[in-house]
Computed example of a mutant assay.
Amino acid sequence: METVILVIGVIGTISLMLFMSNQWLGYGKGNIVMTLDEHYTNLNEYVPAILTKLYEDGKSAHYLGDRKFEVNGKRYVLVERTVPIGRVPTQQTVLMPDKK
C-alpha cells in the first residue's frame, strides 16, 4: 500500500512540474508564442520583428503602443522571457490575451 501511495505521489509531482513548466514557458490557453531569430533589447526594433513574424504566419496584426498588440481582432499584451533551449539562453516572445 505504501508503494502505491509513493508511486501516485511521484506521478502527481511530475505531472505538476510539467504543467507548471508549460505555464512558465507561456504555452497557456490563448497565448501566441514565438521564438525570433535575434535577441532584441530595444522595443523600437523588437515590435517590427514581432509584426513581421505575425504577418509571415498569416495573421493580421498591428501595434497599439504600451506593449499591446491587436492580432486578428483580439488584444494581446507582450511578455518576453529568456528560456534555455538546448542550454542556450533564448528570448521567447509571448503575446498573452489582454484581460482589460
Rank of each mutant, 00 (worst) to 15 (best):
I32F: 00
N42Q: 08
K74N: 15
T52M: 09
L16K: 11
R87W: 03
E2P: 07
I8G: 10
T3G: 07
L18E: 15
G73H: 11
T90Q: 14
Y63R: 05
F19M: 14
I32S: 02
T82C: 11
P97F: 00
K59F: 06
H62A: 06
K99N: 11
Y46F: 15
L25P: 00
T3H: 14
R81H: 12
V10M: 00
I11G: 13
Y27E: 11
G12C: 01
G65V: 05
L18C: 10
G73S: 13
L18Q: 11
G26K: 01
S15F: 07
A49T: 10
V83F: 09
P89V: 07
T35F: 05
L64N: 09
P48L: 08
S60T: 05
I85D: 02
D57A: 11
L78Y: 12
L51K: 03
M96G: 05
L51P: 02
S15A: 08
G28V: 10
Y63S: 01
E56C: 01
L25C: 14
T35I: 12
K68V: 06
G28W: 05
G65F: 05
L18D: 12
G58R: 08
T35R: 04
K68T: 09
N44G: 09
I8H: 13
E38P: 02
G86Y: 00
T82W: 10
I50D: 08
W24K: 07
K74S: 15
G30I: 10
M34T: 02
N42E: 07
A49H: 01
I32T: 03
K100D: 13
D37T: 11
H39N: 08
K100Y: 08
G65H: 08
I5Q: 03
M20K: 12
D98T: 06
L78I: 06
M96P: 07
A49P: 03
V4G: 06
L95T: 00
T93H: 02
I8W: 15
G86H: 00
F19L: 09
Q92V: 08
I50C: 07
L95V: 00
E56K: 05
R81P: 07
D57G: 02
S21Q: 13
G28N: 15
L78N: 11
I32W: 00
Q92I: 06
H39W: 05
T35P: 03
E38I: 06
N42I: 05
Q23N: 09
G86M: 01
I11R: 14
D98E: 13
T90R: 15
I50P: 07
R75V: 05
P48T: 06
H62V: 04
Y55C: 03
L18F: 14
E45V: 12
V47I: 13
D98I: 11
R81S: 12
E2T: 13
G26T: 01
K53S: 12
K53E: 14
I50L: 04
T93K: 04
Y55W: 04
T35M: 04
L43R: 13
E2M: 12
K29Q: 15
V88W: 08
I8M: 15
P89H: 10
G86N: 00
M17T: 14
L36D: 03
V7W: 12
V71L: 05
Y63N: 01
R81V: 05
T35Q: 13
L6C: 01
N44V: 14
Y55S: 07
L51T: 02
L25Y: 10
T52R: 14
T93E: 02
D66M: 01
